[in-house]
Protein backbone atom coordinates (compact mmCIF):
# COMPACT_ATOMS: atom_id res chain seq x y z
CA UNK A 1 0.00 0.00 0.00
CA UNK A 2 2.81 2.34 0.96
CA UNK A 3 4.65 1.55 -2.30
CA UNK A 4 1.45 2.20 -4.22
CA UNK A 5 1.09 5.63 -2.60
CA UNK A 6 4.71 6.51 -3.33
CA UNK A 7 4.38 5.47 -6.98
CA UNK A 8 1.17 7.48 -7.44
CA UNK A 9 2.76 10.49 -5.71
CA UNK A 10 5.89 10.38 -7.85
CA UNK A 11 3.84 9.99 -11.05
CA UNK A 12 1.67 12.94 -10.01
CA UNK A 13 4.74 15.07 -9.30
CA UNK A 14 6.28 14.21 -12.67
CA UNK A 15 2.97 15.01 -14.43
CA UNK A 16 2.73 18.40 -12.70
CA UNK A 17 6.35 19.20 -13.55
CA UNK A 18 5.90 18.22 -17.22
CA UNK A 19 2.67 20.24 -17.53
CA UNK A 20 4.34 23.33 -16.07
CA UNK A 21 7.37 22.80 -18.29
CA UNK A 22 5.08 22.68 -21.32
CA UNK A 23 2.70 25.51 -20.41
CA UNK A 24 5.01 28.12 -18.86
CA UNK A 25 6.78 30.48 -21.27
CA UNK A 26 10.49 29.97 -21.87
CA UNK A 27 12.96 32.43 -23.36
CA UNK A 28 15.79 31.50 -25.69
CA UNK A 29 18.26 33.63 -27.57
CA UNK A 30 18.36 32.48 -31.20
CA UNK A 31 19.06 33.75 -34.69
CA UNK A 32 16.12 33.53 -37.12
CA UNK A 33 17.10 32.01 -40.44
CA UNK A 34 13.79 31.57 -42.22
CA UNK A 35 10.04 32.07 -41.86
CA UNK A 36 7.68 29.91 -43.88
CA UNK A 37 4.24 28.35 -44.09
CA UNK A 38 3.74 24.63 -44.43
CA UNK A 39 0.74 22.35 -44.82
CA UNK A 40 0.54 20.12 -41.76
CA UNK A 41 -1.47 16.92 -41.59
CA UNK A 42 -3.38 17.06 -38.31
CA UNK A 43 -4.75 13.50 -38.36
CA UNK A 44 -1.81 12.11 -36.39
CA UNK A 45 -1.34 11.68 -32.66
CA UNK A 46 0.59 14.95 -32.49
CA UNK A 47 -2.56 16.95 -33.31
CA UNK A 48 -3.06 17.83 -29.61
CA UNK A 49 0.15 19.87 -29.71
CA UNK A 50 -1.31 22.21 -32.32
CA UNK A 51 -3.90 24.91 -31.77
CA UNK A 52 -7.47 23.74 -31.38
CA UNK A 53 -9.59 24.18 -34.54
CA UNK A 54 -11.81 26.89 -33.00
CA UNK A 55 -9.04 29.51 -33.06
CA UNK A 56 -9.75 30.74 -36.56
CA UNK A 57 -7.20 28.42 -38.13
CA UNK A 58 -8.56 27.22 -41.46
CA UNK A 59 -8.46 23.50 -41.93
CA UNK A 60 -9.22 21.49 -45.04
CA UNK A 61 -11.92 18.84 -44.85
CA UNK A 62 -9.29 16.10 -44.72
CA UNK A 63 -7.63 17.70 -41.68
CA UNK A 64 -4.70 19.66 -43.11
CA UNK A 65 -3.79 23.15 -41.98
CA UNK A 66 -1.42 25.83 -43.22
CA UNK A 67 0.83 26.61 -40.25
CA UNK A 68 3.40 29.41 -39.91
CA UNK A 69 6.88 28.35 -38.86
CA UNK A 70 9.96 30.24 -37.67
CA UNK A 71 13.25 28.44 -38.27
CA UNK A 72 16.14 29.48 -36.03
CA UNK A 73 19.69 28.61 -35.00
CA UNK A 74 20.79 28.65 -31.39
CA UNK A 75 24.08 30.20 -30.22
CA UNK A 76 25.61 26.69 -30.02
CA UNK A 77 24.87 26.18 -33.72
CA UNK A 78 22.02 23.69 -33.29
CA UNK A 79 18.78 24.30 -35.18
CA UNK A 80 15.47 25.07 -33.52
CA UNK A 81 12.06 25.54 -35.13
CA UNK A 82 9.03 27.34 -33.70
CA UNK A 83 5.50 27.28 -34.93
CA UNK A 84 3.57 30.53 -34.89
CA UNK A 85 -0.13 29.91 -34.30
CA UNK A 86 -2.95 31.73 -32.57
CA UNK A 87 -3.77 29.91 -29.35
CA UNK A 88 -7.15 28.65 -28.28
CA UNK A 89 -9.07 30.85 -25.91
CA UNK A 90 -9.06 28.52 -22.95
CA UNK A 91 -5.92 26.39 -22.78
CA UNK A 92 -3.10 27.20 -22.58
CA UNK A 93 -4.31 30.66 -21.57
CA UNK A 94 -2.07 32.83 -23.73
CA UNK A 95 -4.90 34.51 -25.70
CA UNK A 96 -2.53 35.02 -28.60
CA UNK A 97 -4.19 36.38 -31.73
CA UNK A 98 -1.34 38.33 -33.30
CA UNK A 99 0.52 35.53 -35.09
CA UNK A 100 0.40 37.47 -38.39
CA UNK A 101 2.07 40.44 -36.65
CA UNK A 102 4.59 38.14 -35.01
CA UNK A 103 5.37 36.68 -38.44
CA UNK A 104 6.07 40.19 -39.73
CA UNK A 105 8.43 40.84 -36.81
CA UNK A 106 10.15 37.47 -37.32
CA UNK A 107 10.66 37.99 -41.05
CA UNK A 108 12.11 41.41 -40.24
CA UNK A 109 14.75 39.74 -38.05
CA UNK A 110 15.91 37.09 -40.54
CA UNK A 111 19.69 37.14 -40.72
CA UNK A 112 22.61 35.14 -42.05
CA UNK A 113 25.52 33.53 -40.24
CA UNK A 114 27.84 36.19 -41.62
CA UNK A 115 25.91 39.14 -40.17
CA UNK A 116 23.82 37.64 -37.39
CA UNK A 117 20.92 39.45 -35.66
CA UNK A 118 20.22 37.82 -32.31
CA UNK A 119 16.72 37.81 -30.85
CA UNK A 120 15.15 36.50 -27.66
CA UNK A 121 12.11 34.37 -28.49
CA UNK A 122 9.46 33.73 -25.82
CA UNK A 123 7.61 30.49 -26.47
CA UNK A 124 5.75 27.71 -24.75
CA UNK A 125 5.81 24.03 -25.62
CA UNK A 126 8.39 21.45 -26.61
CA UNK A 127 10.37 20.68 -29.72
CA UNK A 128 10.08 16.92 -30.39
CA UNK A 129 11.52 16.34 -33.87
CA UNK A 130 10.45 12.68 -34.37
CA UNK A 131 6.86 13.56 -33.45
CA UNK A 132 6.75 16.83 -35.44
CA UNK A 133 5.96 18.85 -32.33
CA UNK A 134 6.97 22.52 -32.23
CA UNK A 135 6.86 25.14 -29.46
CA UNK A 136 4.58 28.07 -30.17
CA UNK A 137 6.39 31.43 -30.35
CA UNK A 138 4.76 34.21 -28.30
CA UNK A 139 7.07 37.17 -28.63
CA UNK A 140 10.31 38.20 -30.33
CA UNK A 141 12.62 40.95 -29.20
CA UNK A 142 16.09 41.84 -30.45
CA UNK A 143 19.04 41.43 -28.09
CA UNK A 144 22.63 42.64 -28.31
CA UNK A 145 24.35 39.30 -28.76
CA UNK A 146 24.21 35.51 -28.40
CA UNK A 147 25.22 35.69 -24.72
CA UNK A 148 22.38 38.00 -23.69
CA UNK A 149 19.73 35.94 -21.88
CA UNK A 150 16.86 38.17 -20.72
CA UNK A 151 15.25 37.22 -17.41
CA UNK A 152 12.22 34.98 -17.82
CA UNK A 153 10.13 36.99 -15.35
CA UNK A 154 6.68 35.87 -16.64
CA UNK A 155 7.38 32.24 -15.71
CA UNK A 156 8.79 33.32 -12.32
CA UNK A 157 5.73 35.48 -11.65
CA UNK A 158 3.32 32.66 -12.54
CA UNK A 159 5.25 30.16 -10.39
CA UNK A 160 5.21 32.66 -7.53
CA UNK A 161 1.44 33.11 -7.79
CA UNK A 162 0.93 29.34 -7.90
CA UNK A 163 3.15 29.01 -4.83
CA UNK A 164 1.16 31.62 -2.90
CA UNK A 165 -2.13 29.94 -3.85
CA UNK A 166 -0.78 26.55 -2.73
CA UNK A 167 0.30 28.06 0.61
CA UNK A 168 -3.18 29.56 1.13
CA UNK A 169 -4.90 26.26 0.31
CA UNK A 170 -2.46 24.32 2.52
CA UNK A 171 -3.10 26.66 5.45
CA UNK A 172 -6.90 26.54 5.00
CA UNK A 173 -6.81 22.74 4.81
CA UNK A 174 -4.72 22.51 7.99
CA UNK A 175 -7.08 24.80 9.87
CA UNK A 176 -10.01 22.70 8.68
CA UNK A 177 -8.33 19.50 9.92
CA UNK A 178 -7.41 21.21 13.21
CA UNK A 179 -10.96 22.28 13.91
CA UNK A 180 -12.43 18.93 12.98
CA UNK A 181 -9.96 16.95 15.11
CA UNK A 182 -10.34 19.47 17.89
CA UNK A 183 -14.10 18.82 17.91
CA UNK A 184 -13.57 15.05 17.91
CA UNK A 185 -11.09 15.25 20.79
CA UNK A 186 -13.45 17.46 22.81
CA UNK A 187 -16.37 15.12 22.28
CA UNK A 188 -14.35 12.01 23.16
CA UNK A 189 -12.42 13.19 26.19
CA UNK A 190 -14.55 16.09 27.36
CA UNK A 191 -11.50 18.34 27.55
CA UNK A 192 -10.86 21.77 26.04
CA UNK A 193 -9.43 21.90 22.51
CA UNK A 194 -5.79 20.91 22.21
CA UNK A 195 -3.53 23.85 22.84
CA UNK A 196 -0.25 24.82 21.24
CA UNK A 197 0.22 23.90 17.64
CA UNK A 198 -3.18 22.26 17.15
CA UNK A 199 -3.70 18.63 16.38
CA UNK A 200 -2.95 18.03 12.73
CA UNK A 201 0.30 16.16 12.18
CA UNK A 202 2.05 19.01 10.40
CA UNK A 203 0.93 21.52 13.04
CA UNK A 204 2.21 19.27 15.86
CA UNK A 205 5.53 18.86 14.08
CA UNK A 206 5.80 22.62 13.59
CA UNK A 207 4.85 23.32 17.22
CA UNK A 208 7.53 20.90 18.43
CA UNK A 209 10.09 22.71 16.32
CA UNK A 210 9.40 26.11 17.82
Amino acid sequence: MRIFQVVIGVLFGVAVFLSLDYILPSRNTVRITNVYNQLIDLNGTNAIFYASPDTGAVETSDGRRDVRFIAAVRPNGKPFVYRNEDTGLIWPPYFKYDSANLHAVASDQVSTAESPKWVSVSAYGWRIPWWSVYPNAIGIRPVAGPDVQPMNWPAMLILGIIGVLLAVVWRAWNRFIDRREGRLVRVEQRVPAAKGGGVSRIRRWWAARR
Binding site: F95, K96, Y97, D98
Partner: peptide, 12 residues
Protein backbone atom coordinates in the same frame (compact mmCIF):
# COMPACT_ATOMS: atom_id res chain seq x y z
CA UNK B 1 -5.44 39.01 -15.31
CA UNK B 2 -6.82 37.92 -18.70
CA UNK B 3 -6.76 41.49 -20.03
CA UNK B 4 -3.17 41.90 -18.79
CA UNK B 5 -2.10 38.68 -20.51
CA UNK B 6 -3.87 39.71 -23.74
CA UNK B 7 -2.08 43.07 -23.64
CA UNK B 8 1.36 41.61 -22.87
CA UNK B 9 1.13 38.82 -25.47
CA UNK B 10 -0.40 40.76 -28.35
CA UNK B 11 0.36 44.45 -27.92
CA UNK B 12 3.92 44.81 -26.68
Amino acid sequence: AILTIIYLVNHT
